[in-house]
Structure formats: C-alpha cells, structure tokens
Design a protein around this nucleic acid. Structure first.
Length: 620
DNA sequence: GCCGTTTTCGGCCCGACTGTTTTCAGTCG
C-alpha cells in the first residue's frame, strides 16, 4: 500500500498526494462494502474520497495547518486515520481493513462493470490474489468458460466481462480525454444526426461539456421528444448512429453507445414539462447533484430528474406559483432557473457546479458574478507573421490584418506578442536593432489605417532561460510596452529549481504577464512542476498578471489554479496565443476557464478600458 | 462514519439498466 516515493508539484511525497489519499479512501469504502459493513459507513468513506479527489489544495498542507476537521466529510474517525498516515506513512486501521481483501480486488475493480462485490467474488472463486496480473488472469478464466459456473454469473455476464476487459485494455492505452472543442465538434455531429429524427423536438449537450470542463471524458445528450410513447423508437435510432462500435445499454428512457475512438455517448429522453430537472440532473456534476439533493432533503424536498417531491407537509401558499403534478405528487419544472428559485437559490452557473462550496454560498447569495466573453476588451498575446528571426513558430497574419480582425471582434486594444528573436548567432546590438526596426514597422503599417477606436500595444513573448534570465537584451526593452515571459524549454527541472527560474524571470523590468504558466499540453504533456503559491505571491507583489492561455490544448492557468490565485489576490489575463486570425476566436475557451475558476470581471485585467489598462501596464 | 434550515440523534441523492433471478443486487451516472 505504500506508493513510490517520488515528489509531486508541491514537493510533497507522492504517498501523501491527494491522488493517493483518494485511492486509499476509495479502497477502504470498497472493502467495507465487501465486508457488509454498515452501508452509511461505506458512503462516509466514499464521500471523504470524493472530497479529497476534488480538493483544490493538498490535503497534506491542510493537515499541517491543523485544519483537517474543516474538510467536509472528514470527521474525527477518518481524520485520525489520515493523521496517523501523514505522521507515519501508514495507517494501522486501514491496513486492518485491507487484511481480509485480496489486493487483486482493487485491480479488478478498474475494469468497467466490475464493482467491489463482483471483484471480490471473482478473486475468491478463481483464486486470483495478486494485483499485477489479475485482469489478465480474469480474462483467461473468462475465455476458458470458467466464470459461467460461478453462482449468480452466467454465459451472458461471462461475455460481458470479456468485452469489458477489452474496453479496459483499449481505454488503458489511451486514457486521454478529449479537448473541449474536439468533443464539442463530435457532439454537434451527433446532435445533427439526432435532429434528423422527426420525433425529436429539442436537444442539448450537457454534462461536463455544458460545464465547459477543459477536457471531456464522455458526451452527454438530453432530448425532448414530441410523442412520449415512442421513446424506444428514438433510442433505437440513436443506437444506429454511424460508426457505433458498441451499444452499452439501451432502455426506454436512456441509452449509451460507444463511438470511435472509444467515446461514450449517453442519451436521456424526457418530456418537455419536466425538462428543467433533467437539465439540472444531467449537467451535474455528480458532486453538485448530491449536495443539491442533500440540501433539498433538509428543507423537505426530494429532487430527481423528473421533479421535486415534498417529503413532509409544506405550506401550499409558499409554492402556489409552481406547477404541481397531482398524479405524481411532485412539482415539475420545465426550466432550471425556476427549479433553483424554488429551492430558494439563485441560478448557479453550470461552470461552477462542481460540489465545492457553491451551494453554501448560493444560500447566502454570495456567488460571484462571473466574467463573460463580452467583458473582454482586448487580447495581449498574438503572434504575427513579421520576421524577427525567432526560433519559434511565427504567425500567419500581418500586424495590419491582426489589427483589423481585432477591430471586427469589437476590441478596444490589441497586443502584438511575437516570440523574441533568437539569441544564438546574434549580438545584443543586432537584437536591439531588430526590435527597433520592428517597432518602426508596426507604427508604419498601422498609421495608414483609418481612424478607429482600437489601440495597440507592442509586446513580446520572451523565453525564460534555464537560469531565469530572459532571452532579450536590456537595450531592446525600449521598443516594447510589455513583456510576456514563458518557459518553452527544459521542462524537467525539479520544483525548487523551476520555481527559482520563474521567480527570477518575473524580476525584470516590463515583465507584465507570466505566459501559459504550466507549459502543459492537454492530453499530450503534463506541465512542469513549480511552487504555485510562491509564484502567486511574487506576481501580486510585482503587479504581474498571470495568463489564462485560451489555446484549447493549453488552457493554463487551470480552473483550480485560477480559483486559488484569486484567493491570493492574483490578477489574470485571458489571452489567445493566436498564431492566425481565426484563432483569436478561441478567447471563449479562456473565459470559460476563468469562469470555472470563479473569476469575475475585476479579476481579469483585459476587461479594463484602454485608459485603465494602459495605466496598469505603465504602473510600477 | 458524518453531520446539523428539524436534529447532538437519526437520518444519509436518486433512478435506470442488466443479469440472474422469481424479487433483487450490483453497477453506473
């Protein structure tokens, strides 16, 4: 049960990471379930595991502050076991629980459709005890027909297990999720297909896509149909979608299919009069739904995707304006706004429905007014086609074309941020001369344009060298209004070195933006490791904005970094990093990261007016 | 085992689908 002792982004031992604690708690819950412990004890451990999984801070840090008891779902008992675990690297209690469970059980549980009980039974009956080759051994047994003879299993479930293992092996090889725009494209294609069916009246993509999560694991679609008696026709039509590789399940009200490359698509069908509760339910997140339903229970109502049932006597007069279905004895909602209102809550934007503390704050009317795309008044990170002999990619469009496009987008200002000229083979004087000429050329190119309300800034995206020095001579600073500094090479430094490197880069004059601060490429490359808290502190002190890079594969700072940054007083820029005019439209994705990070307009610097933003850049 | 818009005791989100069963347990979202 001890994991490898590597260090993670915050410098903590890996066995103390949230990921590891989450795994241990999850396994305790599974073990209790297998051991037929009190089911609410099982739920308690699952809840604690969920909380740790979604924590935006390291539990180990919280423990060091002595605040474990403030973490929801962690009470005196679980808290004391975690305390022991953090102090000694093990927990005698957890070890005792695991004693009766073969370790193979947790390995088998990774296969879809195999839960704790099934895994335990299979491990026992087939004598599989070691985790390493557990799945392999199960597959072998299934293919030899040894599962069908186990009580409560049959030929069909044996076949299911073989299929599930195949899916697991495929999934294991490409665990990556889809980036949001790609998932969106897939969803649109599917919805276009569904819309061709005349029975479908309304259709929406919900789940993580509606919450605008940066990467999407599966696609959730809800539909209203015109004739409720014909839902199975629509379900059948759905399962016939071109390229469907597998029908996972298909009933009267919902179905799931798998489409290439291993994307799960869930469809739910519902009547129009109750569609509001369906929107709410299917948008999730699961954690938000559990908390919302829990809250509703406390005020005397039980929520499902079909409506809201009173669980005790209620004052009719308070709820007169809402639609009550006498047959089903429940309130019905055709839209979400009314549902939240009914519960005494303001509308909670889908982006923040993650089950953190949004419901508590909503009760107190304490939710922030989230930033919107229309609040954005400019973009500071755009690459042009202008040749300053950089060693990175240049953009596709001229300054003039970028400027005109920014005008079309209704911006008040635009910032040109080409990559710095390459430093090898040229002297500081050469580079300074290039920068001087660039400034003159920009001014010349844009002077011929007719008067607009649009202003421009001359910026530059400069590499942070491994030493933390900038790849730009001091003499060149005269020819820029601001610098974005970014790490573009040597990602594999340890936390301490990388933090030092970035801190040093932030100390140079005219540095106003820390660009794509993790260097990650979603689904492809993890970011480099550094101390986020220290960088935030420095950024606040030096009046430097941290970038939310709207490039769909970057989207960093991430939503959780944004939220923690805001708590520390950090201000952010949302920039597209566009290398072509059409990419300037990616701004929406950056705004969505900000919204998921609970950012309001005042947290985002490029929502300021031209005058204010100019002052901001010139300040300090 | 956790927790408080009814509570320090008595609740704990809710429903669909599947396979192996004759009424339900397990899994999933």
């Amino acid at each position: 049960m001890l994991a490898e002792t590597t260090t993670n982004a915050t410098g903590k031992k890996e066995i103390f990471s949230n990921k590891e604690i989450h795994r241990v708690l999850r396994n305790v819950a599974a073990s209790y379930l297998i051991l037929n412990e009190n089911k609410f004890k099982v739920i308690a451990y699952q809840k604690a595991a969920d909380t740790v999984e979604h924590l935006t801070r390291e539990l180990h840090d919280i423990w060091q502050e002595g605040s474990l008891k403030d973490v929801p779902g962690i009470g005196p008992s679980i808290g004391s076991h975690i305390d022991e675990y953090f102090r000694t690297g093990r927990s005698s209690h957890f070890e005792k629980v695991f004693k009766g469970i073969p370790p193979s059980v947790f390995a088998l549980m990774k296969v879809p459709t195999i839960g704790p009980k099934t895994a335990f039974k299979l491990a026992q009956e087939l004598h599989i005890s070691y985790p390493k080759k557990a799945v392999e051994k199960l597959e072998e047994a299934a293919k030899k027909g040894r599962i069908r003879s186990i009580p409560t299993f049959g030929e069909k479930s044996e076949g299911e297990i073989i299929q599930a293992i195949e899916a697991y092996k495929k999934g294991g090889m490409q665990m990556e999720r889809m980036v949001l725009p790609y998932a969106h494209e897939r969803a649109v294609h599917l919805m276009d297909y569904l819309k061709k069916n005349p029975l479908i009246k309304r259709i929406d993509a919900l789940g993580s896509m509606r919450r605008m999560v940066s990467t999407i694991g599966d696609i959730d679609i809800a539909a209203v149909i015109t004739d409720e008696t014909k839902s199975s026709e629509v379900i059948h039509y759905f399962t016939q979608y071109e390229g469907t590789t597998r029908i996972d399940n298909a009933g009267e009200a919902k179905a799931s299919i798998i489409v290439p490359p291993h994307i799960r698509v869930d469809l739910r069908i519902q009547s129009e009069s109750t569609y509001g509760t369906m929107l709410q339910y299917f948008t999730g997140s699961k954690a938000h739904n559990i908390k919302l339903r829990d809250y509703a229970n406390k005020i005397g109502f039980s929520i499902s995707e079909y409506g809201v049932k009173p669980t005790r006597k209620f004052k009719n007069s308070n709820y007169k304006k809402y639609s009550f279905n006498r047959n089903k004895e429940m309130f019905e909602f055709s839209n979400e706004e009314t549902l939240y209102e009914f519960l005494g809550l303001p509308f909670i934007p889908p982006e923040i429905r993650e089950g953190t503390n949004e419901i508590d704050l909503a009760k107190k009317n304490g939710l922030p007014l989230l930033v919107e795309l229309k609040d954005i008044r400019g973009d500071f990170h755009i690459h042009s086609s202008y040749d300053i002999s950089t060693s990175h990619d240049v953009g596709k469009n001229t300054y003039k074309e970028i400027f005109q496009n920014a005008d079309t987008l209704g911006y008040e200002y635009v910032g040109f941020a080409d990559h710095n000229p390459k430093t090898s083979g040229s002297t500081s004087e050469d580079i300074t001369a290039i920068m001087k000429k660039r400034k003159a050329d920009i001014e010349k190119q844009l002077s011929s344009l007719k008067q607009t309300e649009l202003h421009y800034f001359i910026g530059l995206e400069v590499d942070i060298l491994t030493s933390g020095e900038l790849a730009l001579p001091a003499g060149a600073l005269e020819y820029v209004d601001y610098l974005i500094v970014s790490v573009h090479s040597v990602f594999s430094m340890d936390v301490e070195q990388m933090t030092k490197r970035i801190l040093k880069a932030l100390s140079f004059p005219k540095v106003k933006i820390l660009g794509h601060p993790t260097g990650r490429l979603l689904t492809k490359r993890n970011g480099y490791k550094f101390d986020w808290n220290q960088i935030c502190k420095e950024a606040v002190e030096r009046n430097i904005g941290i970038e939310i890079n709207a490039w769909p594969e970057r989207l960093d700072a991430s939503d959780s970094m944004v939220r923690s940054g805001i708590e520390k007083g950090v201000q952010f820029f949302i920039n597209t990093d566009a290398h072509a005019n059409e990419q300037m439209g990616n701004m929406l994705y950056g705004v969505e990261v900000a919204r998921r990070g609970w950012a309001s307009k005042s947290d985002i610097i490029n929502t300021l007016s031209y005058k204010k933003v100019k002052e901001w850049l010139e300040c300090c």
